[in-house]
């Protein structure tokens, strides 16, 4: 759910950039520290960023007959943690703006806030809660991806609602309007993304449990190996 270039009035664009900045700076600091301790992690982080970009370019068939793209937010947050995703997400969104014209530079702050900050934190929080409550890896990953996606879409609707209040019912009404117009594509997309993410993680558990273990994802296979 990218907000297109030039969509937000200048004050809103600036305000969302200011709101996103501390998270991105915090993520960048964490990454710089990690790279200083282990220079090789630079390449792994680059791989993670490229993975997020290409994952969001996969075409999911949607009910309406057209194609939609997953956000990759949920999987990214579970695999690489939200602070790192704040930075990687910013890089990916910048690349999407200048390589695909999806999103934009004036709306980068708003898009970073919804897709690289709120989405990953919601996804990661949901994943941790589900795992703590005794839920399996599959359930945790499904809820993380689906709810991370929904959170992103709700934040985008709020951002648009704040920028274009309804003449009768104000910002609240405008948010409802944007929520309902995007619900047609976003709710089925959230569910498909959840399912797809579960299938991807299941495959990864089978083919590269070591990489998952290195990223701190506990799977039955990696526990058996550790034992």
């Amino acid at each position: 759910m990218h907000i297109a270039e030039g969509y937000l009035p200048p004050l809103h664009a600036a305000a969302w950039t200011v709101a996103a900045a501390p998270f991105v700076v915090h993520g960048a600091r964490a990454v710089v520290r990690r790279v200083r301790e282990d220079p090789d992690s630079k390449l792994l982080l680059g791989a993670a960023g490229a993975f997020s970009f290409v994952l969001s370019a996969l075409k999911i068939p949607s009910v309406t007959g057209s194609c939609s793209h997953p956000t990759g937010t949920g999987l990214g947050a579970v695999l690489f943690r939200p602070p790192v995703m704040a930075l990687l997400g910013t890089i990916v969104l910048f690349f999407q703006a200048v390589l695909l014209a999806h999103g934009g530079l004036t709306t980068l702050g708003a898009n970073v806030f919804s897709m690289a900050i709120v989405g990953p934190w919601v996804a990661y929080g949901v994943y941790r809660l589900t795992r703590k409550a005794g839920g399996g890896l599959g359930l945790g990953v499904f809820l993380a991806a689906a709810l991370g996606d929904l959170a992103t879409y709700c934040v985008t609707s709020v951002q648009l609602g704040l920028a274009f209040p309804d003449p009768v019912s104000g910002t609240g009404g405008a948010v409802v309007k944007f929520l309902s117009i995007f619900a047609v594509t976003q709710i089925p997309l959230a569910i498909s993304e959840g399912l797809l993410t579960v299938l991807i993680v299941r495959l990864l558990v089978r083919v590269s449990p070591d990489d998952l273990a290195r990223l701190g994802i506990r799977t039955r296979t990696s526990e058996e190996v550790a034992a």
Partner: peptide, 28 residues
């Protein structure tokens, strides 16, 4: 079918993950 489409898409996602990290390791 929808079923095979999702399976194929998951295959694509997993393939990118494996290849991205493999490339990174080789670069390393």
């Amino acid at each position: 079918t929808w079923r095979t489409t999702y399976r194929s898409l998951a295959g694509q996602g997993a393939a990118i993950f494996v290849r991205a990290f493999d490339r990174a390791r080789r670069l390393e």
